[in-house]
Structures are given as structure tokens and as C-alpha cells.
Design a protein around this nucleic acid. Structure first.
Lengths: 343, 343
DNA sequence: GCATCTGATGCAATCGATTACATCGCTGCA
DNA sequence: TGCAGCGATGTAATCGATTGCATCAGATGC
């Protein structure tokens, strides 16, 4: 019914060459004489030929795409990392599939499916809390596409990882508050088994200790990085008989939720309590009050992860060098209105 | 070097049947006797067989995925729509590719590539401001995969579109402010050639007129939906000799940017000026002050668009019915702290 | 002038799943 | 008994690009 799309054979006929030559013009232009190449390119344009990726991928025994496993697409923190990934992947020829690991529709078997070679050529994993059997570097790993971890990581895992220095970030936050004169500092954490939570909480404890400030367990509140959890923890904080004069939140979202809920209850930031966030998401600079936070180079994290994966893929095609590098990107403190000297 | 993955032939051998039967178990289970089906399924499990999508797509002459064109991945407004789309697509077998149309890496030719049938089986377009030749329903359209527009649309375009009632949303916002007693109401718009901008501005003007309130052109400010533009327009607003007592912003992001910048300059919301946003993004409820806004059913928009596209794809396979429906989803006002009676 | 080499190109097998068509065995009816 | 009909299954062509190997023309060397 509908006219067939031109295929490589049609181009070959139009150019008066064989399909092999057309294919070479597409994938290895150097192996074709300049004159022939020009003719073929013209024929491609005239026929309106578009390469059929399914056929190419089948023959090349590849999937043609990489998959990004992200814990929560709706979190603006991740969208900018995705931006960096897609930007770095744009010219590579690989498709970028994004899968929300916490999403109902994306059941476990679906994720496991992505881990299979003929579904994707590689993965960037932003969620290290997936079931261990899914991510383990175990025996079936040979059948799996290469994985690059970003933001989160698995302890003692040899695979390449792109992270920031979370420990240092927490130290910067606590030092900043201590420098302002705060002696009582609380901390809102992420989910307890999360590596980021652990690293940031350790950094917080270490920095407090280094400043000779007491580490009070009842000033550590367990959240989950979300706006809602920050708001919920504000209620717990208000219920304390003795409240810290400053709170370091393990994410900007929690910080915003926390400040918002305090505001609803007539508690003012930074007058009544100073707040420092983590991430420097876009809203941080515009929040009321604007949010002091630890900035992560989000786009750079994404780009770096993507480039590392591309290198792995390239490597896999040629030699079998085990490219395993861990890259730690810098964080910095951005001081804004939400932190001030205690009253 | 690496052991080959089991293919459909290996499964056939293991089960003692032909590849055709295995294929039928996979794609048309009804056409295989129950006994054989059980044997084949066992063989699939034993061999660890995974279907090769490249081969299937090649044979079926399809791309195996749909593409979502989104103007800005980093905007949280879109991420929830994407959530809805991926959720509705999860069980369909189609991959979901996300392309950021405003992103440097995604040049025009790349987008045009997606518009070609053998690159994607269908598109969901959230950005109606792409170059007209890219989206036009013109002569080459037959060679193109079906398109569903969502959020934004092209006027007089026959293709299916999922939107909300922007005109009504603007009316709700203005009526709310008028009900509170505001007689002078300004409006921050999106980019001037955007359909949403136009519809919301028309709704604003109509509602003002219906209330016998003057429509003052110097109280209409041109933004671009972003946080930064909201902040920039706050400066312009402050420069007015006569300021409206309320401002309706065409996006929550602009509203937050606007309020944040006013706060920096000592102007308080809602005491000095009431603000209403549009979208009800997650932060709206947690902002300081919490933001009165027009809520859009974001996940539902995504799901509806996805389902419409799936219906189109299904249709295309059987009959050639021109499925062309426009669906308008409801909006509602969420009153919060940022709007109050004028002083 | 002839053998050899090199670069360009063509031939044809191949990747793995699907599906039109053929086949086979069985039931049921005349 | 014979044959149509039907459900289940097998055979083999097919989708479109890639690539190992063969071929060929022209250049180079002796």
C-alpha cells in the first residue's frame, strides 16, 4: 500500500554501485574512493534514504542504545544529569532510554531486561539501591552490558563510577554553619540504606567532631530526600524540647520542604533557624529565603558518566581492557540567605 | 570469544519444535497447542533466551520505539508528564526515547531523523514551536510516523491533541483574584509566539473584561515560563509607577522566580501583591508563601497522550481510520497563601 | 614484459525473528 | 470409505545492512 522506503539496494542502483559500497560510504568512508563516495552521497540524498537501524543493529549484534536507570524522573535533580547524558550521547549514534526504577510500570523484570545485552549496549545507573541480584557483578555479568554508576555507587564494586565528594560536601556545609557561630547543628538525612545518606551523615559527624561540637542523635532526622519528607520532619523538629540553631539537609528538596513547613507554623529561616541544603537545584537561588547549599556539577556528572560509558563501549569493540576508573567531581558551597549567624 | 546468546533456534532445538512454533509462542500464543506452549516456555526459561528486538523490528518493519519531543527536560513540569507517558507505555513493548528539543546536542537534523518511520514508530510532541517544516502535516507526512501533540498544539492541525483548557485556567485565576477584591491585575506571559501564552493571555483579557476590570497593556509582561524570567520581570514590575495589586503568572516557575526576586527587594507576597501561578508543580505547595495556582493533571496528560498514540499505532496496523480526536482535560484552582485580599 | 602488490569494489553469506504457505493428522459427515 | 475442514506445526523466504573473501584494474619493481 504505502510505497516502500528506499533501502540500501535502491541507493546502490541509483548510484550504479553495489550495496557493499553504499554500506562502506555509511560506516567506513575511508575505504571508498572520493569519486564514488560523492556519487553515493548524491544518490542517498536523491532517494531520501534513511538507514534502517534495526537491520544495522541486527547485523552488528548490538542494541543501538544505552539505558539510564534513574530513581525518580520527576526529581529536578536528575533531569539535569539526564541533560548532560543526552548531550554527551547525542553525536554517538546511541539511543538513550530512560527508565524510572521506582515507577510502578517499570517492574523488576523490566529492569532486568535492560541488563541484557541485546536490549541495551550499556547502562548508566543512578540508583544503587536496586535489588542486588540486578546489579551484582556476579557470574552472569559477562552476559551483561557494561555499567557506569553515577551519583550513587556500590561499595567495593570494581565498575567505573562517577561521583562527587559527599563527605567533603557535608564538611563544607557544617563548617559554614560553624563559621557563622552555630554550636548546635542538626541533620536531615536521606533514606537510611542509601550510600549518599551514609556518606553525608558521616561527613556531618566528622565535621561536627572536628569542631568539638556535640553529635546529638536526636538531632539527626531520617528523611528520603523528598520535599514531603522535609516538610514532615519540620514537625518533628518543632517538637524537640531543645532545638539546634541550624539544620543541614541532605537534599535541597528536603530543605525547601522543611523551610516551607516551618514557615507555615510561623518559624522563620534564617532568623529562627539556619538551613543548608545539598544539590543546588535551580529553585534554590529563587527560594524564599534563597537557599545556602552545596552545589554539584550536575550536567558534568551526566556528561562524564556518558563519556566513560562510551569509552567502555569503544574499548569492548577493540580490546578487552578492563576500564575501571572512579571519578570524583568537585563540590562547592554556595552561601545564600537561608544561613545566618544564630540569634 | 564470548559465548553466543541463545536464539530462537536454540530454543526450538531444546523444545524439539521448529523456530516458527517458538515464534508463535512469543507473539501469538493462541495459535499453539497448550502442551507445546508449555514445553516451549520451559525451554525458553532453561536456555535463558531473550528476544532479539533488532531482529523482530527488522522483520516487522518497525522501529520498536516512540519518541517524546520535550522542550526542556530540566523543567519539572515536563518530568511528570514523562512519568505518565512511560507508565502508559511500559506494558506496550515500545521503547520510549526522550529528546530535548532545545538542547544544543539535539540539532534539527536529529529531530527530523526521529520523524522518519524507521527511526520511531510514533511521536509525542510537547513542543509545538519546532520549525514548521519539521512538524507540518504536508505531503511527506505519509512517510512519517503518527504524531500526538500534548500540552501544546498547532492551530488547525487535524492530528490528535491532548491539552488542558488554558483559557478556562486563566479565567479561574483572574476570577479568584477578582473575588478576593483585586481590581488591578497584571499578567506574566510565556514566550510571545507560544500557543499556551496566547491562550492564557486571551483567557486573562476575557476574564478581566467580563469583570469590568481594565486591561492595561503595561501590566502584561513578556517572559518565557522560566524561573529566571520571573525573577527578571519582578524588576520591571517594581519599576512601574502604578502597580497592580495582583499578578497572574503563566507558569509556576515564573511565579516562584517573581516572588523570590520581590522578596530579595523587600516586597512581600501576598501582603504587597498577590500572585497566582499555573501548573501546580510539586514545589508550589512548599514554596514560601505556598503558591496559589492552576493545577494541571500532568500524569494524566502524559498517560492520555501515550494511550492515544498506542491506539493510533494499533489502528495503523489494521485499518486506516484517521483517528483524530482532541482531548481537553480539566484544570482546577488550588488556593494557597500567595493570594489574599488587597490591602 | 611479467610478476606482485595495493586499493577499490562486488558477491554472497549472515545476523535472528516472523509469517505465508504447505503439510499432516484427525474429526465428522455423507 | 472418502473427502472436506480444521487445528497444529514445519519449511523456507524475507526484512536491510554489514563484512569476509574474491576479483579486478592499475601501479610498481626488476
Amino acid at each position: 500500500m504505502t510505497a516502500r522506503f528506499p533501502n540500501i539496494g535502491d541507493v546502490a542502483t541509483a548510484a550504479g554501485v553495489s550495496t557493499a559500497t553504499v554500506s562502506r560510504v555509511l560506516s567506513a568512508p575511508d575505504r571508498v574512493s572520493e569519486a564514488t563516495r560523492a556519487i553515493v552521497i548524491r544518490a542517498i540524498e536523491e532517494t531520501g534514504y534513511r538507514i534502517n537501524h534495526a537491520a544495522r543493529n541486527l547485523r552488528r549484534r548490538q542494541a543501538g542504545g544505552i539505558v539510564v536507570l534513574v530513581p525518580n524522573l520527576a526529581n529536578p535533580f536528575f533531569s539535569q544529569i539526564l541533560s548532560g547524558i543526552t548531550s554527551a550521547m547525542a553525536t554517538s549514534g546511541y539511543n538513550v532510554l530512560i527508565a524510572d526504577t521506582r515507577h510502578a510500570g517499570d517492574a523488576d523484570h523490566r529492569i532486568a531486561d535492560y541488563l541484557h545485552n541485546n536490549r541495551s549496549d550499556g547502562l548508566i545507573v543512578l540508583d544503587a539501591q536496586l535489588p542486588p541480584d540486578v546489579l551484582s557483578a556476579g557470574e552472569t555479568a559477562a552476559r551483561r552490558p557494561p555499567i557506569v554508576f553515577a551519583c550513587e555507587w556500590l561499595d567495593d564494586d570494581p565498575r567505573p563510577t562517577v561521583t562527587i565528594d559527599n563527605f567533603e560536601g557535608a564538611r563544607l556545609a557544617v563548617d559554614h554553619l560553624a563559621d557563622l557561630g552555630h554550636r548546635s547543628i542538626g541533620h536531615l538525612t536521606g533514606p537510611p540504606d542509601n550510600v549518599l545518606t551514609i556518606a553525608r551523615a558521616r561527613g556531618t559527624r566528622a565535621a561536627l567532631a572536628a569542631r568539638n561540637l556535640t553529635v546529638r542523635e536526636d538531632w539527626f532526622f531520617e528523611g528520603d530526600f523528598s520535599l514531603a519528607s522535609g516538610a514532615a520532619l519540620a514537625v518533628h523538629w518543632l517538637a524537640l524540647s531543645e532545638r539546634p540553631s541550624a539544620v543541614f539537609c541532605a537534599s535541597d528538596a528536603m530543605a525547601c520542604g522543611f523551610i516551607g513547613a516551618l514557615h507555615q507554623r510561623g518559624v522563620s529561616v534564617p532568623d529562627d533557624v539556619s538551613v543548608v541544603g545539598f544539590d543546588d537545584i535551580e529553585i534554590a537561588a529563587h527560594f524564599v529565603p534563597s537557599l545556602t547549599t552545596i552545589a554539584q556539577p550536575r550536567a558534568l556528572i551526566g556528561e562524564t558518566a556518558a563519556r566513560t560509558l562510551l569509552a567502555l563501549l569503544e574499548n569492548g569493540r577493540t580490546t578487552d581492557v578492563a576500564t575501571s576508573v572512579s571519578q570524583t567531581l568537585p563540590v562547592r558551597l554556595v552561601a545564600r540567605e537561608s544561613s545566618a549567624p544564630p540569634r
